[in-house]
Simulated scan of single mutants.
Amino acid sequence: MTSKIDKTRVFVAGHRGMVGSAIVRQLEQDPSVDIITRSRDELDLTDQAQVRRFFAENPIDEVYLAAAKVGGIYANDTYPAGFIYQNLMVESNVIDAAHQNGVQHLLFLGSSCIYPKDAEQPMREDALLTGMLEPTNEPYAIAKIAGIKLCESYNRQFGRDYRSVMPTNLYGPGDNFHLENSHVVPALIRRIHEAKRAADPVVDIWGTGRQLREFLHVDDMASACLHVMRMGRDPLAKLTLPQRSHINVGNGKEYSIEDLANLIRAEVGYGGDLRFDVSKPDGAPRKLMNSELLISTGWTPRIGLIDGIQSVYKWYVEQ
C-alpha cells in the first residue's frame, strides 16, 4: 500500500501570458506540484469580490503573481490610466486575498522600469526611489513599486514570505506581437517579417536606435522565479534594503536597439533598410540591471540573445 503524497498547490496568476505560461511549463516538470490556474473569463483579478471568493474556495500554498497589463513605450504613453489602475487592482486584490487566506509564500513580478531614469548603471536594488522615473512609463512603474511595497508591508506586519523579482526586458514564446502595443523585440520581429513578405524597402523604428537595453529570454526568467521562490531566507539577508525588498533578474548583457534590429533583420532574412524616427521617444537612454545578488545564490541564465531570437522567430512563424 502506497502512502498519499500531498502536493504543493500553486496558483499561477496570469498563466496565459508570456511569463506565466513559462512558469507553468517549468512547474509541470515537478510531480510534487499541483498547478491551479484560472482564465480571465473565469476569474477577473481586478474584481476584489471574485478574487476573495476564489482564494476562500481554493486551498493554495504558493502564488506566482505574473498577471499584469504590460506594453511598450507607445502603449504606456497612450494608456496611462489603464496601466496604473489595472496593475494596482490586480496586485492589491491577489496579495491581500492570499494573506487573508493564510498563503505564506508569494512571488510578485515587477519590472526594471521601477528604477529612476538617471539611475547609476548597472541598476542596483537600492536605487529604488532615489530619483525621478522615466515619464513615458511612470504610471506602470508606480504600480509595480506599490506591489513591492505591498509585499514588504505584509512581510513586516504579518510575517509573510512574499518576495519580489524585477526582470529586465523579457521576450519569448507567448509574447504580444501587436505592432504598436508590444515590447520592442516582438514588435521588431513582426514589423521586419511583414516588411520582408511585402517586399517593403524600409522599416521604420521608433527613436534613435542608440538606447541600450538588456534582454532576457522568458524561460530564463521562469527558472529564476522558481529559484527565488524556493531558496531559503539566508540569501535574502544579503540585501541591505528595508524588509529585504526585491531581487533583480537579468543577464548583464546590453545591446543598442539598432543592434537588436540588425540581429532580427539577419534572422528574418530581410534585405531592406532600417530607418530610425528620431521624432519619437527613446525612453530611458540605458537600462542595465545589476543581478549580482541573484547570481550569487546559484542561478545563471542559459539562453543567449541570438539563440533566443532564433527560437522566438521560429515560434512566431509557426503561430
Results as ranks from 00 to 15, higher is better:
Gly174His: 04
Arg265Phe: 12
Pro59Phe: 09
Met123Leu: 02
Asn248Ile: 01
Leu212Ala: 08
Lys280Thr: 10
Gln319His: 14
Gln104His: 06
Asp277Ala: 09
Gly20Ile: 00
Pro59Tyr: 04
Thr208Ala: 01
Met229His: 12
Thr78His: 11
Met289Phe: 11
Gln29Val: 08
Thr37Glu: 04
Arg38His: 14
Arg160Trp: 01
His217Asn: 05
Thr46Tyr: 13
Asp41Thr: 14
Leu293Met: 11
Pro186Phe: 09
Tyr313Ala: 04
Asp219Arg: 15
Tyr64Gly: 01
Asp204Thr: 13
Ala98Trp: 04
Tyr162Lys: 01
Thr130Trp: 00
His246Asn: 04
Leu109Pro: 08
Leu65Ser: 03
Asn101Pro: 11
Ala143Phe: 04
Gln243Tyr: 15
Lys280Ala: 12
Asp126Met: 07
Ala75Leu: 05
Cys225Lys: 11
Pro301His: 03
Ser21Cys: 05
Gly131Ala: 06
Ile192Leu: 05
Tyr154Met: 03
Ala119His: 14
Gly283Ile: 13
Gly110Gln: 00
Asn251Thr: 03
His99Ser: 08
Ala67Val: 09
Gly82Phe: 12
Arg163Ala: 05
Pro167Val: 00
Pro235Phe: 13
Gly174Glu: 02
Asn169Ile: 09
Gln104Ile: 11
Leu109Phe: 10
Arg124Cys: 14
Met221Phe: 14
Arg190Gln: 06
His193Cys: 05
Leu305Glu: 09
Ala68Trp: 02
Glu214Val: 02
Ile189Gly: 07
Thr300Asn: 06
Leu170Asn: 07
Arg16Cys: 08
Arg25Ile: 07
Ile95Cys: 05
Glu152Tyr: 02
Tyr162Met: 00
Ala67Gln: 01
Cys113Ser: 14
Gly72Phe: 07
Lys253Thr: 15
Pro173Lys: 12
Gly232Ile: 12
Thr8His: 12
Gly172Cys: 00
Pro173Cys: 09
Tyr316Arg: 00
Thr136Glu: 10
Asp307Cys: 03
Ser182Leu: 08
Gly269Thr: 02
Trp206Asp: 13
Gly20Thr: 00
Thr240Ala: 12
Lys280Asn: 04
Ile257Val: 11
Glu258Leu: 13
Ser291His: 14
Arg210Met: 12
Ile306Asp: 15
Ala75Arg: 08
Tyr115Glu: 02
Gly209His: 11
Ala222Pro: 13
Tyr79Phe: 10
Gly131Ile: 04
Arg124Asp: 08
Ser92Leu: 14
Ala97Gly: 01
Ala98Gln: 10
Lys144Ile: 00
Leu150Phe: 09
Arg213Glu: 03
Gly131Arg: 10
Val203His: 00
Phe55His: 06
Val63Trp: 06
Lys7Arg: 12
Ser92Gly: 14
Met123Arg: 14
Arg9Tyr: 03
Val12His: 01
Asn248Gly: 01
Arg9Ser: 02
Asp259Leu: 03
Asp34Cys: 06
